[in-house]
Structure formats: structure tokens, C-alpha cells
Write a protein that binds this DNA or RNA. Structure first.
Lengths: 352, 352
DNA sequence: GACGGGTATTGGAACGATCAAAATGTAGCG
DNA sequence: CGCTACATTTTGATCGTTCCAATACCCGTC
């Protein structure tokens, strides 16, 4: 069915081939490709026919080299397998694709070494900008050194360590972690909870610190005590959270509610609670963070904070694209106000 | 802290800059960069120092242009937000990164039009190959036309419509859908189930057809009847599955078990069952397909078929890389034998 | 002191596109 | 007929890298 009048040379078709094929210069073909009004209608038709006939595909790399521009954006994520980031990536790709950019993907798996390697490798492809959700413990100096000053960086989700935030030469898109955790904690307090734990995450990560700070803020404002053993660390995934569940109950007084670092942790904790015969949403209140798809569908459905990752992805892309337009403007910090979504997993304490 | 002895010109550093900086030719610098044994130790040291001093970054696009090779692979997925594909993408990126390739990402959101657009756009960046999990209803002729004969294609997860499979000039990596669904159905039958529905997915998709065929095969082999209203279609996501749950019980005889198109559907169905007061894993048996992370953590945990998407991603990358090495070899079809994972959601029928 | 044989280095032409400037052709007009 | 005005097309240099052939140099030998 394909129009294969041309024998299959094992070489790629270039402008020169088209030019030769319909007896014009390379420049004219180039003008046709870019829809310039300078070319004669008849010529354009002839050239377009020849393009189709030979099955020409544009070589954007060559064009970009000459024009000294770039049409790709690097997207580097600490954990693509996490649905939150998968949604985010989808949003980024949507928005970038719409603007004619291509997404160079890199996943670091929370490894700083891989982050460096991936950034270095992607930068060799000369992206117009970088969207980075850094690995835990990633350092500003390191990142700045490999990215350089020329390529705009948009930082998502986490701050980088080691350098004062104020003079960082990049834009940021963050979630309002502190306020979110405060809202969740206040919600539990309003339900009558008094012994509330903060569960999950690593104390080293900036988002975890912020969420914990929000929790502390709400507890203090309500005049409630905070026991040291109500702070349990664990890796931000279900499996580790389920495993660490027991730690909540080693010492008295045991908590009757937990503000969790994120949804993955909250879902894992609920599983752990079930395994000990404790019913989340009835005997023990749980809140999450992120509002991933399964939060609404767990049993009980999870009270959490919605950050709308796909929309954040689009937003990140738009922020970066705007930055490309005005490279000199001051670095900008955007904070998205997460929203509390109340569902069945939060409940009053069991009648003592 | 950065070694900024060079004033910040607003131009990128090139080979020529380095060459000028330490008084050698561009060719020599190029040799140093590629670790050629031809250059003198002393010269090499001088050049390397200068590279560091000026903060040179390699321009792979320019090099690829000259060498007429490519160092990127396009990865086009029908639904990146689905954890199954997110895991797959992670695996692909892992393996490609390890082999020095960069991943060009594209997500189509199950739209054929977007698939065409995305493929076209990515191809302009001249990838060495393409890994494609096609959108539902995507047509072989169309895809072949935009990809052309030159760029190797690895098809994942779904077949393309419209062209005979046998003469398709691309490799494929598929899951053994039919056998998987047969295993699940046989498992339910062995538990004593007799009225088993096939729930979810679109009848148009090849994977759905294959899974349904496996179900039919097992039912027929056991001599069990299949009622037409035991085949419920729905979009392959939780929300639609939960909404369609009721359709299972419109007509008698109602099923007491369901083989679901995939895990997302199974989890949605379980939610729908709960909402009608039916307890999955006790009153009604459910099986899924994919073994996504949350399958093990739902309540009850989901009996399903493990396909290990991250490993499949690595495998897909390896298959494509091997193909790049030997472009002339015959197209290859690889089928991964999924494994049945028995968990709590499958149970005998309630004692009639 | 011309010659052979390493070792190290280099100039200049590619790769496939774009851009600026120059070159065509074609009419109109005094 | 010569001149400008306009529309269309072409020439040749260029982007940053690699390849190829050529060269420069050093050392030892006849």
C-alpha cells in the first residue's frame, strides 16, 4: 500500500535528495518545509509531492545545531514507578508535547550517583531546560556544577541541600507541605483525637521536614503533647510502612491516630493495622498526602491532601517554558496549596 | 565554590574554545574526549585541565550528526499514568541508560491521533529505535508509514490491527494473555466455582480478546456454561470498573466469581462489590492481571497474574538493543509466560 | 645527510539543516 | 531602452563534532 516507487536505499533521505529530485536548491526545499510564504505555489506543490514520494523525515537535530536552539526538555525524576510521579510525568509530557518539545526522560531511583550520571547524559543532548525532582539528599552544589548556569532548571517537589535557598538561581514548584500536614492534623484534632503520631518518611528529606513541622504546629496550637515515640521513620513506600506499623505501639501512651508522610505510607500503615486486628477508620484514624488514585478506592477510603500531580506536571512544564522566554527574570518560587480531602479513614478516637 | 575563572560568556563552550585555550587543534581535543590512545600523556593532561576549567559539555547531537548514528530510543506508551506502564518505563530507562542511550518519552493517552503526532515528533529526533505500546485500535499500516522501514520497532503488550501478523517487519514482546487468563479461570474452577464472569476491558483490544479466549478455553474444557451477560465491558480503570459492577447482577443466574481484565479493573470491581454489601474473597471471588504493587496490599489481597513490568521493560530495551546490532535478522516474537499468584481474593463459592 | 618507521598532531572536508546576501527573472514606467 | 521594484530562487558559509589523509617531528641507521 505504501508508495514505494523509490528503491530502498539504506541511507536517510535528506534535503539534498529532495532538492535533486525536483530540481531546485536545498534552500528552497527548506523554505517549503517551514511553510515560508516566499516560495511559488507551483514550486511548493512540486516539492511537497517529492517529499511524500521519497518519504522524507525532518532531521531536527541538524536544524537545531545550525539554529543554536533546542527542542527538548529533560525530565529527571527520583521515582517514576511511584504513581504520583508517573502522573506528574504524564502532565509534563502533555504540556511539552503541545508546545513542540520532546521529553528526555531520566529516572534516578533515589540514587544521588545515578542522578548525577543521568543529568550528565541528558545534558549532552542539549535540552532547553531541566525539570528535576531530586533524589533524597541531593546537593545544590553538585547539581549546579553539572547543569551549569546556562540551562534553566525547574526544581519540583523537594529542595536541594547544601546551599542557601535564597540565592539559588533556579525556579521552584513546591507543594505546601507544612500547611497540608497542619490541615490534616487540625482535622484529626477537630474530630476529638488527642494522641496523634507522625508516621513515615525520612527525617532527612525536606518535604518530610516540612510536613512534620505542620504537624507540630497544629499540635502545639491545640496545646497537645507530642511523645517522641510518636515519630516513626520509614521508607516512603507501602511495604516498609506496613512493616513499621508495630513501632507505633511499643510504648504507652499509644497513639489513636497518625498523620502519614504520604499516601503510600498511609496505605501500608492501614494494611499493617489490619494485620494487628486494628480497623483503620474505626479504631484508628489515618491521613495521607498526595491523593493518588487508589486513595479514594482503598478500604476505608483515605483522607488525604490533594496535590493533583498531573496538573502540577503541566504547571511545571509551563513555568519552565515561560522561563525559556525570559531567562533574565528573577527566580520564582511557586507553592501549590494542597487541599484536604476528607474520607473514611479519619475518625474520632474510640470511646475510652 | 565553582571554578569560575572564566567570565560567563553567553555562548556554549565548544571544542574550538578548548583547542584555542590550550593551543592544540580541535581534532586533538576530540581524540582526548574519546579516550584515544593516540594522544600524548602530557597533551591529554593539559586538555583535560582546560576542559574542566571552561566547564565544557559534550554536544552529542553534533557528534551524532557527523557519525550518522543515534544515541536515543523513543518510548511511546498508551498510558504512562498506569502503574504497570510506569514500572515498564522505569525498566526501559534503566536498561537504556546503562547502555548509553537516552529515552525520548511520549505518552499517547490511548488516542490514535496523538500516537501519530507523538511518533512523528519523536522520529524527527532520529531515535535509533522505537518501543511502542500502541493505543487501542492503532493500525499497522499507519504506524509503519510514519516510522518507516529504517527505524527498528519493538512492539510491546498489544498487537497492531489491520495487517497480518506474520509479515510484520518488527519485533514483539507480549505477555501470554491467553494462558494467564486460562490459569486464573482454572484456579477458580478448582476452587469449586462454576458461574464465572469475565469482567472489564474493551472487546476491541487484542490483549482483552486473548484474555477472554483463555477464559473461554478453560470454561469449555471444564464443561461449564458461559452466559452472555457474564461478559461485562468497561474501561480498564478502577473508576469505570466500580461503576459497572452492578451489571453483573442484572440477570440470573448471577456469577459468583469474576476473571477481570486487569488489576485496576479487579480493584475497582472489589470496591463496587463492597458498596453492594458483597465481600470479595468471601462471597465472591475475583482475579486480576498484572500484579501491580497494590494488588498485594488490597483488602483482600488480589489473586492475579504476575508479569513483572519492570523486568519486561528491561527485556524490551535489551531486545531492541540486540536488534540494533543485527538489523537483518528475522523479526522475533517473544512471549512472557505470566505466573499465577494466589492471594485472598479468590475463594470457593458461598455454600449454596 | 638521506632514509625508514614510529609517534603525535593537524587541516579541511564532511554530516543535514539554516541564514544572509546575492542573483535571477519579470514587469512596470518614464 | 534603461531603471527600479518586486517576487522567487540560489550560493556559500556556518552550527559543533568526527573522519581522513597528510604532515611534522624524533630517533636510529646506512
Amino acid at each position: 500500500m505504501a508508495t514505494d516507487s523509490t528503491p530502498h536505499a539504506n541511507r536517510k533521505i535528506t534535503l539534498a535528495d529532495i532538492a535533486a529530485g525536483c530540481d531546485v536548491s536545498r534552500a528552497t526545499v527548506s523554505l517549503v518545509l517551514r511553510g515560508s510564504p516566499l516560495v511559488n505555489k507551483l514550486t511548493r506543490a512540486r516539492v511537497e509531492e517529492e517529499l511524500r514520494r521519497q518519504g522524507y523525515v525532518y532531521n531536527r537535530a541538524a536544524a537545531n545545531l545550525r539554529r543554536r536552539i533546542s527542542s527538548s526538555i529533560a525530565l529527571v525524576l527520583n521515582d517514576l514507578a511511584n504513581p504520583f510521579f508517573a502522573e506528574f510525568a504524564t502532565g509534563v509530557d502533555e504540556a511539552l508535547g503541545g508546545a513542540g518539545y520532546v521529553t528526555l526522560l531520566g529516572s534516578t531511583g533515589e540514587s544521588i550517583a545515578r542522578e548525577q550520571a543521568v543529568l550528565g547524559s541528558l545534558l549532552e543532548h542539549d535540552p532547553a531546560g531541566v525539570i528535576l525532582s531530586p533524589a533524597e539528599g541531593s546537593d545544590a552544589g553538585q547539581v549546579l556544577k553539572t547543569i551549569g548556569m546556562r540551562t534553566p532548571l525547574l526544581l519540583f517537589n523537594r529542595e536541594l541541600g547544601g546551599k542557601a535557598s535564597s540565592d539559588a538561581p533556579w525556579d521552584r514548584l513546591m507543594l505546601d507541605n507544612q500547611r497540608g500536614a497542619r490541615l490534616a492534623t487540625e482535622h484529626l484534632i477537630a474530630l476529638g483525637q488527642r494522641r496523634i503520631a507522625f508516621f513515615g518518611g525520612h527525617a532527612g528529606s525536606s518535604s518530610c521536614q516540612q510536613r512534620h513541622a505542620g504537624y507540630v504546629e497544629a499540635m502545639k496550637a491545640a496545646g497537645l503533647p507530642i511523645e517522641p515515640h510518636w515519630r516513626i521513620e520509614c521508607a516512603p513506600n507501602r511495604v516498609d510502612a506496613a512493616a513499621q506499623c508495630g513501632a507505633l505501639f511499643f510504648d504507652a501512651p499509644a497513639p489513636t491516630a497518625a498523620v502519614c508522610y504520604n499516601d503510600a505510607v498511609a496505605l501500608g500503615l492501614m494494611l499493617g493495622l489490619y494485620q494487628r486486628g486494628i480497623r483503620p477508620g474505626r479504631d484508628f484514624a489515618v491521613t495521607g498526602f498526595d491523593d493518588i488514585a487508589e486513595a479514594a478506592l482503598s478500604a476505608p477510603p483515605l483522607t488525604t491532601l490533594a496535590s493533583m500531580p498531573r496538573a502540577r506536571g503541566r504547571q511545571a512544564a509551563e513555568l519552565l517554558l515561560r522561563r525559556l522566554g525570559e531567562p533574565q527574570a528573577d527566580p520564582q518560587r511557586t507553592v501549590f496549596p494542597v487541599q484536604l480531602v476528607v474520607r473514611g479513614s479519619s475518625c474520632p478516637p474510640p470511646a475510652a
